[in-house]
Design a protein around this nucleic acid. Structure first.
Lengths: 198, 198, 198, 198
DNA sequence: TATGAATGAGCATTCATTCAT
DNA sequence: CATGAATGAATGCTCATTCAT
């Protein structure tokens, strides 16, 4: 009679539903136009339930950002193959970003909402975009060490430049102006030429 | 009847003072933390006077953005010399941008506040960053025609990429992390290599 | 034509009306059961107007207490005649207190609401009752100096004891249990005997 | 089958623990700043358990007051010796009150929280202070009958006056302003002189 | 008997905007 | 042109109480 362990697939538990609703609304309406009450209602819960899981609205937004970051990072680490040329690496990364963007439209944009907008004081330690810029810095550095990339750049600056370029083009793409294939092709060539050694 | 003489040093009219106050406060506090009342008070005017000049707060912000754009464009057109190499043109432009940023700290950042933040519906026709991206597109196109830049790029995409790179590095610079000289040097080389023909 | 100075008896101005409404409601319902909105509505004003005059509800209550204190003090200073025996002074004071209580029913009681109730942190510097206790201390001291009262008391303690006795009997009186004439008579004798020298 | 032995040192049942926690928190934070949830958590119980024992928060507070009253009364009846002079009786009572206050700091003060604060409508049948006033009335009456106290007082009024004096001085004492020895000495003399016959 | 997730009416406070002067 | 008192819908958040387990 070990049958007592039927887990019956219950509880699409309230936190999970709040997270989904918060993501949906932050993406659709932005931070300021989304009220905790809206998030709870969208999740089919009472207002108070929101505050069972988050101390305030800001914490909920930050959790959303953090989740998006981790999701995105998983996507990226899957996409990147170890021994590839600089161009291949860039193309793979771009494709991974656009894949994520296509399957989660608007999420990156919402997650990158300027922290000044959320709370003038005590904002996010480091904005999402800056963190990703730092990751690009590391990539640039390692490519330089492998002789794939020009060694005379300040990797920090170049990392931020790359992430800025991707952000702005991605944004325009999501406004429906630019086609993805061209985007990947152009940006890959642009970045590769800018970075490659000699 | 000498009373008719032109009063040479009269006090700036109320709209001018409102504009100055609005800029100051939008830069210092951001859009949401600035109330029309604060702007009027900062300008030494009654609260109601604000609405004599702007239909609402949003219009005031948009006017601020437009002014910043025009100021910046003046700076740029002065800085650019007609017959220069691609590299010279890029370096001159970057320097002009940082000059403006130094003499008007925070203005560009505030003016580029994401329109989604200002009003979910009926946002700015075209965000400032996108407009500047379009101007870079035109520069890239004309450089390509002059044989200075690679012809096979989609200028629209590359324009947005460039402006994104500049925005993000500029932002990090204003967080006090990056030194201007290095910034100009690295970005000039980065963009020149990425763009140049052959 | 100095007629330009007709003051036309305008503006039963909003602060005055708010004060009256606040007093009425704090007396009728107590601090916690009175909302800023109720005060404003009672005064025939919008909610927001309340916050034009008080930074918060607590400040409004404290202003009410201070007003009551001053009103009461005026009453007392009018009632007391300079050269009177201890017994006369006590009787005059008690009568003045009950006169005030009769014409402003409930006000003293509401004004003496324990500060702990209003805000655990940063409460009233010194509660109203304690302040009045200190004034009684001074009276006891001066009576002792004039040889009217026993010199061996600690005036501070006795001042608080007197004010406590008056408060508690006044409270019971307002619950309709005790008759005023008897109250004044009994308390006067009680205090006089307790205080008088020899 | 030794399992049936009486478990001598079982943990105090939930009501006992709730009572202890309620007392602790009402004393430390006051009525309004204490939530049923806090009381339950402090007692190491689930929130819902609170409502197994009390219909609502008000009932819990009233139970706390009643317990304090009974405890205090026990203290007093132990302290009072049958055949003593008025002065001895007063001194013994005061000492008993301060003993209780010293060993249960803050409890009397919390228990005497104005009933208006707890619930505007349908407040406590008779506030604690008034009940103790009535007990003092009885003491005064019996002292008068024994010829120890002046017969011409209205005992009801004098009872309330005494209890008010004790309350207010006790409160100031707990604010750390007055020393106990002096308190007992001064109040004993004060009350004895006020009460004693002839 | 015990639990604690869920609830939603309620609260203090803000702020873009209006309008009588 | 200029004023600033007045407005009230809207916001983020709390907490006494319920109820399915």
């Amino acid at each position: 009679m070990n049958g007592a362990v039927i887990p019956i697939k219950k509880r699409p538990d309230s936190l999970t539903r709040l997270k989904a609703s918060a993501r949906k609304l932050f993406v659709e309406r932005g931070y300021h136009a989304t009220r905790p009450q809206d998030i709870a209602r969208e999740a089919g819960l009472g207002h108070g339930t929101f505050y069972l899981h988050y101390p305030d609205k800001r914490a909920c937004f930050l959790a959303f950002v953090e989740d998006a970051r981790q999701e995105m990072n998983s996507h990226l680490s899957i996409a990147r193959t170890p021994d590839s040329s600089l161009e291949e690496m860039i193309a793979a990364t771009l494709n991974a970003i656009y894949d994520y963007s296509d399957s989660h439209p608007g999420v990156l944009r919402a997650a990158m909402t300027d922290e000044m907008v959320i709370d003038a004081e005590g904002a996010q330690a480091v904005p999402l975009l800056v963190r990703w810029g730092e990751e690009w810095s590391a990539l640039v550095l390692s490519a330089a060490e492998k002789g794939q990339a020009c060694k005379s750049y300040n990797a920090e600056i170049i990392g931020q430049a790359i992430v800025g370029a991707l952000h702005q083009t991605g944004r325009e793409a999501s406004r429906g102006q630019l086609c993805r294939k061209q985007l990947v092709d152009n940006l890959t060539r642009f970045l590769t030429r800018a970075l490659k050694s000699d």
